[in-house]
Amino acid sequence: MTSEQILAEIREANLSYLMLAQTLIRIDRDQALFRLGIGEETASLIGTLTPAQMMKIAGGNTLLCRFRVDDDLVWNLLTSHGKGAANDGVARLHASILMAGRHQEAA
């Protein structure tokens, strides 16, 4: 991948992310806070972005969204796919509970 391609891909991902975030915020603001893991103020901001603003923000060499899983425990639960197919459901549910419990990031 050339650096030009990389920039294009990043812009694409950023734009998709911003558009989805805005749609979610407009459909149900409160649930969007949970889905996106963002705070009230950020949500207001994203909710009112114009397409032109989005285009501008999306350009750049860094991604606007980041991983919400920041520890090995949840990663291991999420990636146990295949290892024990039978217990997949349990591991994913466990991961969901752990992730839903993290509201510090948004507050």
Partner: peptide, 15 residues
Amino acid sequence: LQLRQGQDEAVGRAM
């Protein structure tokens, strides 16, 4: 939810 042997190991590994 189905649980078979190995779940403990999965969590064990994670730990």
